[in-house]
Amino acid sequence: MKRSPTKEKTDYEIVLQILENVDDYKYLIERYEKKLFIYIQRILYVNKEDTEDILQEVFIKAYRNLNSYDPKYNFSSWIYRITHNEAISFLRANKKRQLDISNDMENNIFDTIASDIDIEKEAIKDWDSKKVHEVLAKLDEKYREVLVLKYIEEKDYNEISDILQVPSGTVGSLINRAKDKFKKLVK
């Protein structure tokens, strides 16, 4: 009888299944690929092909390291962490690349950042998502990533701490600094 993970199964239950049968990995990939695809695009501003290459590498690394996953922690944070590391590696290998700010990702999501950072009053309430997208592109990758995690991925401080592997206190100051930089760029 073919096993098929249901939607009710936890990530960890699927992980255990994958360790028995690699084909079950597709269920976990399906669960995360879209989220991670968007996450990579939001932080790296890369085209679809590069995003898919990075994503594939993320899933290969995750599979290799599956036994290091500790069910005490969120699987989501674990796989986001691997994605973050892959993104950093990509950035290091492509230092002089041009950001692809033209790509047509779900731009409306960037509205969230402008409103959450509370800068509507500062004459940008009529900005469209593309402009927010452009301002974000000008931020350093570390500030952009923390804003994306907080305001778009809606991760809490502990999750961001686990993903970026920094203390939660540092997450708070990173977010504040990122907000300040964002505001300065807006002005």
Binding site: L19, V22, D23, Y25, K26, I29, E30, E33, F37, E52, L55, Q56, F59, I60, Y63, R64, N65, L66, N67, S68
Partner: peptide, 17 residues
């Protein structure tokens, strides 16, 4: 992505550490 990942895992005989 899903298809290519599984193909690569099988082709290169990648195993979890």
């Amino acid at each position: 992505v899903s298809k290519n990942t599984l193909q690569q895992i099988k082709k290169e005989n990648i195993k979890p550490i």
